[in-house]
Amino acid sequence: MTREEIIRQVNAAFVDQFEIAAGQLTEEKKLFDDLGLDSLDIVDLLVALHKTFGIALRNNEEVRKVRTLGEVYDFLEKYAREHPEEIRSVK
């Protein structure tokens, strides 16, 4: 899965789940301070990533360190590289 594909699907989840305009979704944006998410949204982000990519992240320590949208992309890109058999595209 390419980074472009990951960005497309993650952004689609942000637009759908958090009602954020696509134009606002740039890599440097902080999830809490810039995009207005809160801790409950982070739970829903994990649910959305599970739904989109088929990966279970509730017990993943690395994903908890993510602070920006770019870091979400980075995390998923690394995950896809290390666990190609787990991640999938469902859309």
């Binding site: 409950l40 949204d41 829903d44 649910v47």
Partner: peptide, 10 residues
């Protein structure tokens, strides 16, 4: 069907 992984926070 999925346990906690697909359960929204609210």
């Amino acid at each position: 069907q999925n346990g906690l992984e697909s359960l929204p926070a609210q």
